[in-house]
Design a protein around this nucleic acid. Sequence first.
DNA 1: ACAATATAGGTAACCGCTCTCACCATGGTA
DNA 2: TACCATGGTGAGAGCGGTTACCTATATTGT
Lengths: 329, 329
Amino acid sequence: MPQPRKRATIREVAKATGLSPAAVSYALRGMQVSEETIERVRQAAAELGYEADPIARALASGRTGMIGLLCGSLEDLWQQALAVGIGRALKDNDRYALILDAAGDPAREHTLARQLRDQRVDALIVQPVDPAAPLWAELCEGLPVVSIGDALAGARAAGEVVFDNRAGVTLALEHLRERGHRRLAVLTSTRASTPDRPADVHVMAEAGRLDLDIELVTAPQSPASATRVAGEMLDAGHRAFFCFADSIAYGVYAASAERGLVIPSEVSVMGYDDHPMSGLLTPGLTTVDWDIDGIVRAAVRMVVAAADGNPRRRRIVQAPQLHERGSVG
Amino acid sequence: MPQPRKRATIREVAKATGLSPAAVSYALRGMQVSEETIERVRQAAAELGYEADPIARALASGRTGMIGLLCGSLEDLWQQALAVGIGRALKDNDRYALILDAAGDPAREHTLARQLRDQRVDALIVQPVDPAAPLWAELCEGLPVVSIGDALAGARAAGEVVFDNRAGVTLALEHLRERGHRRLAVLTSTRASTPDRPADVHVMAEAGRLDLDIELVTAPQSPASATRVAGEMLDAGHRAFFCFADSIAYGVYAASAERGLVIPSEVSVMGYDDHPMSGLLTPGLTTVDWDIDGIVRAAVRMVVAAADGNPRRRRIVQAPQLHERGSVG
DNA sequence: ACAATATAGGTAACCGCTCTCACCATGGTA
DNA sequence: TACCATGGTGAGAGCGGTTACCTATATTGT
């Protein structure tokens, strides 16, 4: 049984002002009515404590004013930072975000994405776990989608901020090579879990080019669980790491400390993504930096434009930058 | 203009099965209809690709199945961890969370809380910025609210997981005192920003009891900005810190490193909240631990029960624990 | 065999708002 | 004087479900 809603409805406001509900609706949104009527309605609404019901509004108009944000995996600190940044930026645009977490699971991503569409979000920002899913093509029909990270395969996205991961990988591997590391442990995250894992493929290709001896392992993104994997690699004799997320690199720090190994003299660590924390560690984590503020701004600008009905349909390719801080010896 | 929704409606399913819309509605929710009919409806729904529209459902029933999560300030890493944990735990309960961020602003908290209510969330978890706001009393009428952190003043909450901050403060200050620190810089967070800041008051009281010389400063919760404040205190000669959030403590680490000061031999740092990262630093951050998993479990259990209509109305007082890791010399 | 009770499903009134469309004053134009 | 834009306004039909209430039919008790 619906709980007793004591709130005023638009009909009561109509009655109070002697207007029709329709007129009130228009007045409150400042359309098609005279200034005088608007003022009268405002007054009455304030007195009755009337506020339009967003659910009813959504049902009738098909719009909500909300923007969906579907994160790939909030376990990753960088993605957390991204989500928080986007939330704040949207707030500055008088929009508000509905944040959901796919938890790295393509099936869940599928479910939640449709759920957001059904919630009538005006637009969607997504950091796809599986950018190749047919889902996206379906979703992009009738809902502006802005993707961050990878481009959506075969879908007409309303905007894309893609990371040039090939360049990022090259940057990282070349840096490690220059510093004299030939044998590397590469800890990839579950985030790059597209079917064929293009980033991993590129890692292998670059390894060939640079004459590197690589062991590739999948690690969970949470620092705590990454510590275990990192420990195993250290015990196996690895001393140089390329981690596909800064939060994984934190695990290498912890595992090294546990074993009394010093970074960077004994162990070298390279991160990826540049989380705000990375500069605070000792030594600072050398990492590949994606300009998180720029990404946030670009994505938000695109999504707001799209939600307002004028999509830019632009693709911005984000170039990586090597941020050297001293964790590679 | 509402975009063309090509989706099947309940009426189409009714037509296809030769039943009334009502019967279909019941069947899909497994009430009042025969097994056979249910199966028939399922079949037809699957064929038509029918899925109930959550908005329409919410409008008619006043329920959504969603649980609102209103965070005090997602800038704080600990609160991020809490939010992620709650999100996952709710997922395990087949519930899904709508996450919003008050950004430490009471006014925003006010707006968003009402917005969540208007969104018809079945229940609300809140980490109040201002637990004394009259808002809560209003909200608790007709919506189960579970609060984490502080108790809601004058409101009938559906559950409370309160932190015994007095005990936590005492624990921290006594530890620092035992280790021989008499002059302390206390960096409080904006999180405890209730009008009278009870935690701060207690700090001063305990300082008196323990004969401590305290300087109390407000610091932003983001590590990067906390670094600046910490630096100023270091430059002013402070060498012992009590930080009211681990993320602030990270700032002390960074500021110390910048100045070539070594923790714990030259600088002592005490945190508060035990973020997952804190164990990964070198040295590990000594902090006051709140058993985040326990909090998540308790809050989620309460909120799910309340959303299902059987509120427990319990108050759990969370006891702090000193987690010594070596950052206090 | 007949009243009493379940049980399945139909009817129709909502939920609170938006939006199309028809209507009605105006005042300017032919 | 008749005619047409013009722009404010009201009526009413949805939006896509849910639910209280009611009617048949099947089941049960005596």
